[in-house]
Write a protein that binds this DNA or RNA. Structure first.
Ligand SMILES: [Mn+2]
Ligand SMILES: [Mn+2]
Ligand SMILES: [Mn+2]
Ligand SMILES: [Mn+2]
Lengths: 142, 142
DNA sequence: TAATTAAGTTAGCCATGCCTAACTTGAACT
DNA sequence: AGTTCAAGTTAGGCATGGCTAACTTAATTA
């Protein structure tokens, strides 16, 4: 029923859940909470909502698995995160600034904008001289 | 007192209020509402909050002026909006996609990231060949 | 197996930011 | 001056997404 577009919060949860599953094999409430820096109660709440929205299947006290729909969304946001990170890294920005900015921007990038930035990143990777000039033009630090 | 960072909503209001003042000479509740696509009631509410936070001075039923703090914030978000728009325009994206994406991303760009994108934009403007290759590499359309 | 404790859940709360409906204010026209 | 009506305000409500405190479940340990 409810096909309304995903919120930034939903995308962040799905992204983190997929990441935990990929690295640890499973996603537990306590790990999601620690990793997102929020309370376990908030995670329980959202996990139940994601279950209701059929983005994952959750068995209380047991565990969760992403549904096909949930995994598709998760992979999609993970891809936006990765491509934006790659792009900003090229510009020589500080790691933590990149992480912060990407975490916010990733929720507002249309497919066509993403493709354009992807293409630009590929081109820039072949032009180290241009990138060097960039760093020089700015303060050269962060 | 309350130095907590501004929300995206606050930034959007301030940006629009400054724009109305710059183009019409004053910002009225009804115009802010129409221009942001929200109800007058919501605008009244936020305007009163911005007054309480000393970002503008509001005289009920009369009018509003930005305080120094409010104008500083407004100019700042307007600049982020402009620079991001310039950058995405360079990539040949559709106007409406740009507007949509910028409206979201502008709230998540750190000063150093902004400077980097500004420098990149300046360099790219001197390399039309690279930009042409970019458009070709993608679908060439939006 | 019984006790302990980490993990998870529930209940109740709050801030933000939006809405509609109903009312008030003040400007403009007669 | 009285009427009309656009603009503005207030009241009350809702969804989202956080929180803490108290309780329950289940895994571990003695
Ligand atoms: Mn994010
Ligand atoms: Mn992310
Ligand atoms: Mn915006
Ligand atoms: Mn803007």
């Amino acid at each position: 029923m409810n096909a309304s577009r995903s919120s930034a919060a939903v995308e962040d949860y799905l992204e983190r859940i997929l990441e935990l599953i990929n690295t640890k094999g499973y996603a537990r409430v306590v790990d999601i909470a620690t990793s997102l820096g929020i309370s376990q109660a908030s995670v329980t709440n959202m996990v139940q909502r994601l279950d209701a929205e059929a983005l994952l299947k959750y068995e209380k006290y047991r565990g969760m698995v992403l549904t096909t729909a949930g995994e598709t969304l998760a992979r999609n946001i993970a891809r936006r995160h990765q491509l934006l990170t790659d792009f900003l890294k090229l510009l020589g920005l500080d790691e933590r600034v990149i992480e912060h900015d990407v975490e916010g921007m990733e929720h507002h990038i249309s497919p066509s904008t993403l493709r354009a930035i992807e293409a630009l990143t590929a081109q820039l990777k072949r032009r180290p001289a241009l990138l060097a000039r960039l760093s020089k033009q700015r303060g050269a630090v962060s």
